[in-house]
């Protein structure tokens, strides 16, 4: 039986135009809406699969503003069984601060008889992109860590993780308890079902205040890259543009002779 803790971060959906907050310390999400990263969606899916195969629990955790409950409910709707909300302004937290808060939750739960033998995180958060919370967490907890796993399976007290690395398809085999960070691509996150959503609404979320004051990120400010004026020449729309495209190939001299 495996009890997994999976960490997700509420971030502004950045697929459209990115707008900065007035103090240039964060991305403004008022118009764009919020989401979690693809890596974290995959981590949630892997957490749910690991508990289904071993009959354990999957607890989702976030450190964020009150609204981050939305992301916890989404994870509950696809199979997580419990949720923890550390209420704090995430833009005041550096990666080491976040790791410390996650570690505090793991320790408190352990003291209460609910140990998390596997902690899953994303490889990198979609906004701050620090690429390190999982590794720092491993050092906080004195546990081994596998980074950038596409697949995660738990059996016989160990976790087997698959990483697409420079040596090819790399396999890690690590004894529990352990930390694994997840890269998208190894599993397809499931969609929530209606009963899933109904169940998610009923789960009582554990609300916590942060364990220690954050040191804060080393951020001076965010900035947007200067917009480049477009000089694009639109040759046309749809299939009708094909002759113009081939004319272009001729002009550029790229047709194979």
């Amino acid at each position: 039986m495996t009890n997994v803790l999976v960490c997700v971060k509420r971030v502004v959906d950045s697929s459209g135009e990115v707008v900065l907050s007035e103090d240039a310390q964060s991305v403004d999400g008022r118009y764009a809406g919020f989401t979690v990263s693809k890596h974290e969606e995959c981590a949630v899916e892997l957490a749910v699969q690991a508990t289904a195969s071993t009959g354990g629990t999957a607890t989702v955790l976030t450190l964020g503003e009150p609204d981050a409950v939305e992301q916890l409910r989404s994870a509950l709707a696809v199979g997580c069984t419990a949720a923890v909300h550390v209420e704090a302004d995430p833009s005041a937290y550096g990666p080491a601060d976040v790791a410390r808060e996650v570690a505090a939750v793991v320790r408190d739960h352990e003291a209460a008889g609910r140990s998390h033998d596997l902690v899953l995180l994303g490889n990198d958060a979609a906004d701050s992109g620090d690429f390190q919370v999982g590794i720092r967490l491993a050092y906080e907890l004195g546990r081994p860590v596998v980074n950038g796993a596409a697949t995660v399976e738990v059996a016989d007290g160990e976790v087997v993780a698959g990483v697409a690395g420079p040596d090819g398809h790399e396999t890690y085999r690590v004894p529990l308890p352990a930390v694994v960070t997840v890269l998208e691509g190894g599993v397809e996150p499931r969609y929530p079902t209606v009963p899933g959503r109904m169940k998610a609404k009923k789960v009582e979320i554990e609300h916590r205040t942060p364990a220690v004051d954050p040191v804060g990120p080393k951020r001076v400010r965010l900035l947007l890259p200067p917009p480049q004026p477009s000089k694009v020449d639109v040759l046309g729309r749809g299939a009708d543009a094909a002759p113009a495209v081939v004319d272009l190939f001729e002009r550029l001299g790229v047709l194979a002779r």
């Binding site: 502004v12 950045s14 990115v18 900065l20 991305v27 979609a126 906004d127 701050s128 992109g129 990120p217 080393k218 951020r219 001076v220 400010r221 965010l222 900035l223 947007l224 890259p225």
Partner: peptide, 17 residues
Amino acid sequence: TVTRQVVGGAALEEMVL
């Protein structure tokens, strides 16, 4: 002070090390 890519490259962050 360094500048780095954040938000998947859609924004930059100035950071003091």
